[in-house]
Amino acid sequence: MRRDRSRFLLAAGASLLLAFPLGLQAQTPQELKAYERRLQQLFEQLDRDGNRRLERQEVQGQPYLQRHFDRLDQNRRGYLTPADLKPSNKVPPPRAERVLRKADQNGDGRIDQQEAQGYPWLRKHFQTIDQNGNGSLDRGELNTLSKPAHAN
């Protein structure tokens, strides 16, 4: 009974710590250190064999880690280290850059009508976003996505 309770608390704590990365909020250095210390403790509890790696089988029963294992394992090593679990300081690219990166299949820096087909919202608003009417969307035109007029 006590062991089940500890596992539950461990799972709940890991999910809470990892699901809400501190990088999204302004944190004091003390709060960040406390967060990293709790994260390290959880890591050590999950690392059953003590090899400083979390293998897939060690994260069984940890829904967040199971679901996000591949995303967290950015180096594709098949295991997670404490560094993989730390909050990211990276600022996500602007929306226009993300859209261009995903939809530009031929890498020419533009999205044509064919490339837009896989993105219903982009396909629907293609003519509006294509301000110069040349049949493709460039980075400048995609920057209008950040403006409220195109936020639906």
Results as ranks from 00 to 15, higher is better:
residue 34 A to Q: 04
residue 110 R to D: 03
residue 63 P to V: 15
residue 151 A to Q: 13
residue 42 L to D: 03
residue 92 P to R: 12
residue 137 L to D: 01
residue 46 L to T: 00
residue 137 L to T: 04
residue 139 R to I: 04
residue 15 S to H: 14
residue 72 L to T: 01
residue 88 S to T: 13
residue 120 P to H: 08
residue 71 R to E: 13
residue 140 G to K: 07
residue 89 N to E: 12
residue 56 R to H: 09
residue 92 P to S: 15
residue 24 L to F: 13
residue 124 K to Q: 14
residue 120 P to T: 06
residue 81 T to Q: 06
residue 105 Q to E: 11
residue 49 D to N: 12
residue 50 G to P: 14
residue 102 K to L: 09
residue 8 F to H: 12
residue 89 N to A: 11
residue 1 M to W: 06
residue 76 R to N: 12
residue 123 R to G: 04
residue 83 A to P: 11
residue 9 L to T: 08
residue 27 Q to E: 06
residue 135 G to N: 07
residue 9 L to P: 04
residue 11 A to E: 09
residue 28 T to M: 14
residue 17 L to R: 01
residue 138 D to V: 14
residue 124 K to E: 13
residue 24 L to N: 11
residue 15 S to Q: 14
residue 97 E to K: 14
residue 10 L to Q: 02
residue 28 T to S: 14
residue 70 D to Y: 10
residue 102 K to W: 05
residue 123 R to D: 10
residue 132 N to K: 12
residue 90 K to M: 07
residue 101 R to C: 06
residue 104 D to H: 02
residue 16 L to K: 02
residue 19 A to N: 12
residue 24 L to K: 12
residue 26 A to S: 07
residue 107 G to F: 03
residue 112 D to F: 02
residue 72 L to P: 00
residue 111 I to H: 03
residue 110 R to C: 02
residue 23 G to Q: 01
residue 70 D to P: 05
residue 124 K to G: 13
residue 67 R to N: 10
residue 9 L to N: 08
residue 90 K to V: 14
residue 43 F to V: 10
residue 63 P to C: 14
residue 87 P to F: 15
residue 102 K to S: 10
residue 26 A to L: 05
residue 79 Y to V: 00
residue 73 D to Q: 06
residue 35 Y to W: 09
residue 145 L to V: 09
residue 133 G to V: 07
residue 99 V to I: 10
residue 109 G to M: 04
residue 7 R to V: 06
residue 63 P to T: 13
residue 102 K to A: 09
residue 56 R to C: 10
residue 152 N to R: 05
residue 133 G to R: 14
residue 116 A to T: 07
residue 67 R to C: 07
residue 86 K to H: 09
residue 148 P to F: 04
residue 68 H to L: 09
residue 104 D to L: 03
residue 28 T to Y: 12
residue 8 F to L: 12
residue 145 L to P: 02
residue 145 L to G: 08
residue 14 A to V: 09
residue 142 L to P: 03
residue 46 L to P: 05
residue 59 V to S: 01
residue 46 L to C: 03
residue 16 L to W: 05
residue 72 L to A: 04
residue 73 D to G: 09
residue 8 F to T: 11
residue 51 N to I: 05
residue 140 G to W: 00
residue 66 Q to P: 04
